[in-house]
Simulated scan of single mutants.
Amino acid sequence: MRIAMVGAGGVGGYFGTRLAVAGNEVTFVARGRHLEAIRRDGLEIRSPLGAFRAPANSAVASISELGPVDLVIVAVKLWDTDDVAAQLRPAVDRGARVLSLQNGVHKDMILRRHLPDEAVLGGACYISAFIQEPGVVTHNGTLQKVVFGDYQQEQTPLARAFLAACHAAGIEAEISSDIERLIWEKFVFLVGLSATTTAIRQPIGAVRAHPRSRALLRDLMAEVIAVGQASGVQLDEKFADDRLAFCDTLPAGMTSSMHNDLEHGNRLELPWLSGGVAELATRMGISVPRNQAVADILAPYELGGPAMD
């Protein structure tokens, strides 16, 4: 397949490199020192599953430099989604479809403001990976999964082709016939993990060990479920308890990318996580006091700040 990977960080870098090594024509859209390193030496993946390297000169600086592709995978930070989506129309007009592996539930809403509904695939990924240094992405653990599907609930030839490409690349992947619900289910957990670890400034082990922070974690997830149900998504009332039990199975030292961004003084994806929950709830007249409190607590750090000691 001809694949454009818009964003070459932990998610885009890992999955894009695996796909490239398997023989797909993958072009990364990257920037800065990371772009320079990929152009010079390729993109290296360090993983418990092995070492992989995408070829040199497999990256460009902008979407406008891309040639014809079958699939565009969006893996940038959420605040860049509007800008990226506005530049993707020429690729879509040439027949490409677009799959976002970003966090949250707002991503595809933004893409659909710029692109035809039928061009947008729904998707979610499950992985812990980050840029170790320019040109190098480190994968934590062995979890590396992609789930995607058409919102029209049809398995199109392109979706089946991408599934086959993932399997050939050693990526765990599946097609979902209810991708919107699956995206919301991931969002429930993601909001709980990101909100608690970032606001409390501790990994999940500390959060789940104390009864009051454990209750906060559950309440945050329950509020997301309420907003999802009000949006018409079929989410089980007991799903917050299910995700809380799942949190008990996680390594005690596991944290979230938002917590990592806070510690390094980086911009936060807060407006699309707890802040996004609060914004959607306000539109629907629903009260989400726990998520609103997290959004307020972290608001001074939303655009970045000094690194934590």
Score class of each variant (00 low, 15 high):
V191R: 10
A168W: 04
A165K: 02
L182F: 04
A199W: 09
K186S: 07
D178Y: 04
L158E: 09
V191Y: 09
T156D: 03
D178F: 01
V191E: 10
Y151W: 12
E154H: 12
A164P: 01
D178V: 07
Y151D: 06
E180Q: 13
R181K: 15
E154R: 15
Q152P: 00
A173Y: 02
R181I: 06
F187N: 00
E174V: 10
G192L: 06
R160Y: 00
V191M: 08
A173S: 11
A199V: 15
I171P: 00
L163Q: 10
Q152K: 14
E185H: 04
A195F: 08
G170L: 08
K186D: 11
E180W: 02
I175G: 11
A173G: 03
P157F: 01
T196A: 13
F187V: 00
L193R: 08
Q155T: 14
T196N: 01
S177F: 08
A169L: 10
L158G: 05
A164C: 03
G192W: 02
A161P: 05
I179P: 14
G170F: 06
A199P: 11
E185S: 13
Q152Y: 09
E180R: 14
A165C: 01
S177Y: 04
L158I: 13
G170E: 11
A169H: 03
I183V: 13
L163W: 03
S176H: 06
A199M: 12
A164V: 01
Q153R: 15
L193V: 12
F189E: 02
A159P: 08
T156E: 05
E180T: 10
A168M: 03
T196H: 00
Q155S: 14
